[in-house]
């Protein structure tokens, strides 16, 4: 009698756990401001006409920026020895200007009336290098095009572990001991933005934007940025700054004249509210990850 009841209990619990775990299976939903990575079916190849312009500007930080916090590197003495002042780099503020802000064209219409999404652009032959140096990533924020080669190097005297955690692209995780050869990677689909982390050193993080076009830049320490080679047209330009779970976005409409320049100045921080779209949610919209993830 007892054994029979135990068996029934065991079977019941196993069945329930399997049902609960099985419910976690589901299709991944592609997301991102500029959609998936597959180009439109009738996409045309873009060829520069010589009348391209540029979008430039500066990103400001209004209010008092949070002070960088020192990172405890006791877990790996090699990090502390190489970079004794390692601190958080969420807010790179210099004289009221904000660095490490991604600025990119989200959508827009060219002067000939076509949408930018109707065009395909050549993948740059240049390689973006993401270096692990002093137990943090350099650059902290960067942008590449779909299929553009990304090289990951380890300049530290310790082992690292590079882990891209995208939503639209496959997860990618590789260990890279000190002295190991550079690793290469590229993304097949566009995605704003792919978080990068090191599971070896949990404070290390970076962001890589993957775009279908080359019109993106990252603000320098003085907050300045410049996007060159932009065909004349009217565009929605987005500035993205990290913070919280998904960062904060600001949008702006700009018109690029033929062979001219458009200005787009952004502001983040406590006092910056214009056109802001904070996407950090401590209590996000109702969702069941067991029903939607993976």
């Amino acid at each position: 009698m007892f054994m029979k009841q135990t068996k029934v209990l065991l079977i019941l619990t196993i069945v329930l756990s399997l049902l609960a775990l099985a419910s976690a299976c589901g299709p991944k939903t592609p997301s991102g401001p500029d959609g998936g990575g597959t180009p439109a079916p009738n996409a045309k190849k873009f060829a520069p006409k010589g009348n391209e312009g540029s979008i430039s500007g500066a990103v400001a930080f209004t209010g008092t920026p949070p002070a960088p916090k020192k990172i405890a590197t006791d877990a790996d003495p090699a990090c502390g020895q190489k970079n004794p002042n390692l601190s958080t780099e969420d807010n790179l503020v210099t004289n009221g200007k904000l660095g490490n802000v991604l600025v990119y064209i989200k959508e827009g219409t060219l002067a000939d009336g076509t949408k930018i999404g109707e065009w395909t652009f050549d993948t740059p032959s240049t390689t973006l290098t993401l270096d692990q140096n002093g137990c943090h990533y350099k650059p902290h924020v960067s942008a590449v095009m779909v299929s553009q080669k990304l090289t990951i190097t380890n300049s530290d005297p310790t082992q690292h572990n590079i882990h891209f955690t995208p939503k639209n692209n496959p997860d990618w995780n590789q260990s890279q001991p000190n002295g190991a050869a550079p690793l290469s990677h590229s993304f097949a689909r566009s995605e704003i933005l792919v978080p990068v982390k090191c599971n070896q050193h949990p404070w290390m993080k970076a962001y890589v934007a993957v775009l279908k076009h080359p019109f993106a830049a990252v603000s320098a320490e003085d907050g300045s940025f410049s996007i060159k080679g932009v065909p004349p047209g009217a565009y929605t330009v987005v500035a993205w700054h990290e913070g919280g779970a998904t960062g904060t976005e600001k949008t702006m409409q700009v018109t690029v004249p033929a062979s001219g320049s458009a200005t787009a100045d952004f502001a983040f921080g406590d006092a910056a509210t214009a056109s802001g779209n904070p996407s950090l949610q401590m209590m996000p919209a109702l969702e069941f990850p067991m029903l939607s993830r993976h």
Binding site: P195, K197, K205, G244, A245, Q281, M282, M283, P284, A285, L286, E287, F288, P289, M290
Partner: peptide, 9 residues
């Protein structure tokens, strides 16, 4: 810890 907890869960 760098992501918010799923509220419903």
């Amino acid at each position: 810890w760098d992501q918010p907890l799923p509220t419903d869960l």
